[in-house]
């Protein structure tokens, strides 16, 4: 078990190094950051001086080595655009994104699994058919359109909910949270639905398909033949077996929720890292872009690791080392 975890962590480090290399190399071709940092009247000598100061004249490998060592220590340099340490910038924006992702992730998972199980068990009911039809819309509408539609209905027409920003926030030990104020909570609703809707329909369809598959298996038939109650069969036996593959997809979806927050954050002017990234792209702010890519990669790697460990906890067949000693 321990060897397995160590092996997985080493793999994760390798993945991170590759991502670092890709992002670092890619951004060298995005454009010359010097142009956007200095005014048009800056002399060539000034530009060269700045170039030297930023270390842009060093050989590629040494630049990369510096980048990786500093990144490992949480130092992604200074933002070209805002002249602030990148790490500080990202940390100040991260709570907004994480809170948004958490709320939409929980929404997507709870409703996705709930609707999925319901539609699998009541396969031919009209409620199920309605849910399935509506979910098609959720899958096929682009995120920004859903966001705009929600703003139009709930913020413009009904004026129930705010259309942009985070509302008031409270700072607790360096973490700004919108959970504790009424405006903060109200501001979360629309962006969270926008961000989570696609994931919810995806999880729902997956759970439904998996559950229908599981309900056809012999062990479910045998469980029914033993006279177990419907509840025990559906939720004790079928749901647990359904969740094994669902866990992987849901885990990966959580990663993409954070990554795709860019669009939702732009639509709702949500002050998170996604919006920060979009602005950085406009100004070729390479350190921020690199740090953002690294952060997203790290999120994916960590989630994958957790998913693998969860697998291990849920499915006894994977605990091979223990089984091998029996027999």
């Amino acid at each position: 078990m321990l060897a397995y975890i160590i092996r997985r962590i080493l793999q994760s480090v390798l993945v991170m190094l590759v991502v670092a290399l890709v992002s670092f190399a890619l951004f060298r071709f995005v454009g010359d950051p010097i142009n956007s940092m200095v005014g048009q009247e800056a002399s060539i000598a000034d530009r060269e001086a700045l170039r030297d100061q930023l270390g842009l004249n060093d050989p590629f490998l040494s630049q990369f080595a510096t980048f990786v060592t500093r990144a490992a220590q949480g130092d992604f340099g200074i933002s070209y655009r805002l002249q602030q340490p990148v790490m500080e910038l990202i940390l100040s924006r991260l709570p907004a994104t994480l809170e948004l992702a958490l709320v939409s992730g929980v929404l997507a998972f709870v409703f996705g699994v709930g609707f999925g199980v319901y539609t699998a068990l009541r396969r031919n009911g009209w409620v199920s058919n309605t849910i399935m039809t509506v979910s098609l819309i959720g899958v096929s509408l682009p995120t920004f359109l859903i966001g705009v539609l929600l703003i139009w209905v709930f913020a413009v027409e009904l004026q129930w909910l705010p259309s942009f920003g985070r509302g008031e926030t409270v700072e607790i030990g360096g973490w700004t949270t919108g959970f504790l104020t009424p405006t903060g909570r109200a501001s979360l609703i629309l962006p969270a639905i926008t961000l989570g809707l696609y994931q919810m329909t995806l999880i729902m369809r997956l759970v439904r398909a998996e559950m229908l598959e599981v309900l056809r298996t012999d062990y479910i038939k045998f469980a029914r033949a033993r006279g177990l109650s419907n509840r025990a069969v559906n939720f004790g036996h079928a749901l647990k077996n359904t969740m094994v593959p669902v866990i992987t997809i849901t885990g990966l979806q959580l990663g993409s929720i954070i990554a795709f927050a860019i669009i939702t954050e732009t639509v709702f002017q949500w002050p998170g890292v996604g919006a920060l990234f979009i602005n950085s792209v406009r100004f070729v702010d390479v350190p921020v872009m690199a740090a953002y890519l690294m952060m997203i990669a790290l999120v994916f790697v960590i989630i994958n690791l957790i998913v693998d460990l969860l697998y291990y906890a849920v499915d006894p067949r994977l605990r091979v080392d223990r089984a091998a000693t029996r027999h």
């Binding site: 062990y219 045998f222 033993r226 419907n230 077996n241 067949r317």
Partner: peptide, 29 residues
């Protein structure tokens, strides 16, 4: 009815299926 029949299954009529490899839920001891 479904509930009355459930009480008969297992309790008064037991059933053994064909394939023992798939008859048991793999996730429970």
């Amino acid at each position: 009815g479904a509930e009355a029949m459930r009480r008969i299954r297992g309790k008064r009529i037991g059933m053994v299926f064909q394939d023992p490899l798939t008859s048991l839920n793999p996730l429970y001891t």
